[in-house]
Write a protein that binds this DNA or RNA. Sequence first.
DNA 1: TATAGTGTTATTTTT
DNA 2: TAACACTATA
Length: 671
Amino acid sequence: MQLNPAQNNAVHHVSGPCLVLAGAGSGKTCVITNKIAYLIQHCGYKARHIMAVTFTNKAAKEMKERVGKIFGKQELRGLTISTFHTLGFDIIRREYKILGLKIGFSLFDAEDQMSLLKSLTENTIEGDKGLLKQLFCKIASWKSDMLTPAQAKILVTGKQDQLFAQCFSLYHKQMKAYNALDFDDLILMPVVLLQTNQEVRERWQSEIGYLLVDEYQDTNASQYQLIKLLVGERAYFTVVGDDDQSIYSWRGAQPKNLLTLNQDFPNLKVIKLEQNYRSTSRILRAANILIANNPHVFEKTLFSERPNGDMLKVLKTNNENHEAERVVSEIIRHKFMNGTNYKDYAILYRGNHQSILFEKVLMQNRIPYKISGGTSFFSRVEIKDIMAYLRLLTNQDNDNAFLRIVDRPRREIGSVTLEKLGLYANMRGKSLFSASLEMGLQQHLNGRSLGSLQRFTRWILELFEESERGNAVEAIRLLVRDYRYEDYLYETASSVKVAEMQMKNVSNLYSWIVAELEGDNYNNEPQTLHEVVQRLTLRDMMERNEKSVDADQVQLMTLHASKGLEFAYVFLIGMEEGLLPHQSSIDEDNVEEERRLAYVGITRAQQEMTFTLCEERRQYGGLIKPMPSRFLEELSCNVEWEEKKQPQTQEERITKGSAAIANLRSILKKS
DNA sequence: TATAGTGTTATTTTT
DNA sequence: TAACACTATA
């Protein structure tokens, strides 16, 4: 592959810190993979001394594939390409003794955190969902700013924040008692460790000869610290990012880290990639003129040598039904005229709920489509249940997992029993599991409840011992055999079909776990049950065999989900004030991020770009007349408005038709 | 312990 | 409005 001069510079600058400002479609992944190749082939780096960090497993996987195409397996041995969180997890796993952790620690996902917080704040917040969410965010932000509960308490002003700091402290203590870590801890603990322990720091710094970071604009404060600590004084690293595509500030990303880098490393080499290989010149010009309305730290102007291309189109429709029908009939027409494939078309939107109507219309027209997002494999109830069993199996102190599954399937362990158990455990500072086995409990519970409770805990204990003896596979087999989850699914599911699906998910998960435990999965080493369960929470294995079937389907997804992808023909729907920019962003005076969101959407398009908006829209029960999005205005002369009203939607015709028939009938009856 | 009735709330989401 | 979570009730 031929690199342009800027890309070449980015690849060849290896003697110090390097920031690559990679505009949309400028070939940044190409630069990273080529740089890894260059480091190995021309700079004498061993693969195991190179580390590349991304944000998602998907991105890591893609990078591995692309590097794999350049090299053979042998040369790549030891090369690390992982996510921030997996990297942190690996550091913790190797240093757990110094960190004072027990090896079987549990990883808590957002849902676990939430239910823990809920139980900790039963008396103070009393299940107020809004407040609970605020608390959750507050703790996350304290953690990403690397504050301990004690520090937070001192810094905090205002009554509510004081309460929150109190909860933070409780949360912290409880997590320790559970021997559990949350996702933020996976970054935070390595940072603190590397800061305070010189020996460990030097060991890791010498181990990592060169560090590459993708999507750098999405890093938060603690992730940046981790980078800094890992590269050390020598600062041999390359970060790649684009401040115009920073769309995750609501998740703690700090695009100002681009600027900080400039200050922290005075010899930072900044290289801009400004040639776009994706879109037509027209689309690019439109994107440039839109994003020019945002302030910039580093100015950059993308250009394309591709032909000018069509104007960007705006379709104004009557209402949201027309919007969907217009777009779908446009796709049908366009496909027919140009002999394209369905997968060349993407429908992008701000919020997930916008997809529903499009889904309906696509279905009516028998057009294959794919919606990205929605409930992922791991947020399905049946998978969460199984995971809870496994987590309890690897760490009995995990009360969260315990509570989720003690009575699922039914074991006649009701809320009263659990409440008494909770009280007992709380007084003695024990976990629910270990408390349930204590003799003293007899005074608080009647024989029957105690019996069913202990039957459960003893069973788990047996399985635990089995897996500790090295027979994890056998333990899992017994688990499946004895707890009759299948029956439970069939009893509780709304239909047989649903239950069948759920059971299929469960058995998929099982075969995966067994394969990982035995180590015959993609010639990986056998893993302990601890490792398998921890990695599953990080979702770091499932994706490996998830074949992305390249089916010919129209692609529907949110703007956020579209980042990094490209499509020949893009529809960006709902270009209205209140939707894009979203109302809450207008209220919070953060239209800039919405503009970047629109920018991301436009720069996905290779050939043609179409916007739609409605005259009227149903919202929260009422009918509103939205204003066109300010972004359409900003695109100015690059867009062409086409106002063509459709008489009626299919549905309106039908309902009106049947109303007329009913009317006729009633008239006939009377006469 | 199911079920109907009531209330609440409408962004983006990965690890 | 519609979808969801939660609660009172038989």
